[in-house]
């Protein structure tokens, strides 16, 4: 048993493992290749879930930031920060899987296309958010500034999501909407990948939150010790 584990995280963790096994089985073995893309279509079963989970994480950051700005609770500050860190990791996954999908399909790892560029900008801005959270500032000041950025940064999600509709580019439009342009085993493989990566994200966010909580407690313990020490010196 580890320090940041609990019954909840163990249930989520084992479910995530089970769904990951299914996602790999269906995504890599059972589902067939695509008529044009051949096996590189399998990358979409991790690429699309990665970006969707990242969107969700940044949504949690938005909610946490808004609540923090209203009630200044450490809990929501840490929720916002934890979700942003996991979301940025998933965003990196989306960029990597997109690049290795793009090479065999488009013929290039990277193109300054609106969808790709806006995603890169989103990545930079959430890195900025994470950098801000690591600045040596008083807790309240840092958390407040992070919360403001956590709210402002959500614009990126909107720009990235609609970039394929607003501007012309290389990236294809929506496949996985209410009217999906993919079906049967391939759709199911994508669904399993989404559930697996979603559960993994939940597990990661909770553990990241608890690590953040412990960091905060340790800060306060050090502060108390320092105050006691200084009082001792004064006598």
């Amino acid at each position: 048993m580890t320090a940041t584990s609990s019954k909840v995280t163990r249930v989520i963790g084992y479910s995530a493992l089970a769904f990951t096994a299914l996602a790999l089985l269906f995504g890599l073995v059972i589902s067939g290749p695509e008529v044009n893309m051949r096996d590189s279509v399998r990358l979409l079963y991790v690429h699309v879930p990665s970006i969707l989970t990242a969107y969700l994480c940044f949504g949690i950051t938005l909610v946490g930031s808004v609540i923090y700005l209203r009630n200044r609770s450490t809990f929501w500050d840490l929720v916002a920060g934890s979700a942003a860190e996991v979301g940025t990791l998933y965003l990196a996954f989306a960029l990597i899987t997109g690049a290795v999908w793009g090479k065999p399909t488009w013929g290039t790892y990277w193109e300054w296309d609106p969808r790709l560029t806006s995603t890169a900008v989103m990545f930079i801005m959430y890195l900025g958010y994470l950098a801000l959270r690591r600045m040596e500032l008083p807790h309240e000041v840092r958390s407040r500034r992070a919360a403001v950025l956590g709210v402002v940064n959500i614009i990126n999600v909107i720009v990235v999501h609609y970039s394929v509709q607003w501007w012309r580019g290389l990236h294809q439009g929506r496949t996985f909407g209410l009217d999906p342009q993919i079906r049967d085993m391939q759709y199911f493989s994508w669904f399993l990948g989404t559930v697996a990566l979603g559960l993994i994200a939940a597990w990661l966010i909770i553990h990241r939150f608890r690590v953040g909580w412990l960091e905060r407690q340790l800060d306060e313990i050090h502060l108390e010790e320092a105050l006691v020490e200084r009082r001792g010196e004064g006598v």
């Binding site: 990951t20 790999l24 890599l28 290749p33 893309m37 051949r38 096996d39 590189s40 399998r42 990358l43 991790v46 690429h47 990665s50 990791l89 990196a92 996954f93 990597i96 899987t97 290795v100 999908w101 090479k103 065999p104 990566l197 993994i200 597990w203 990661l204 553990h207």
Partner: peptide, 21 residues
């Protein structure tokens, strides 16, 4: 076909998750 690209993508994602966890 293109399995090498698929392998890089899956290793990056699931390997990245495991490393972070």
């Amino acid at each position: 076909m293109y399995w090498n690209f698929v392998a890089v993508g899956y290793v990056a994602v699931y390997g990245g998750v495991v490393a972070y966890a």
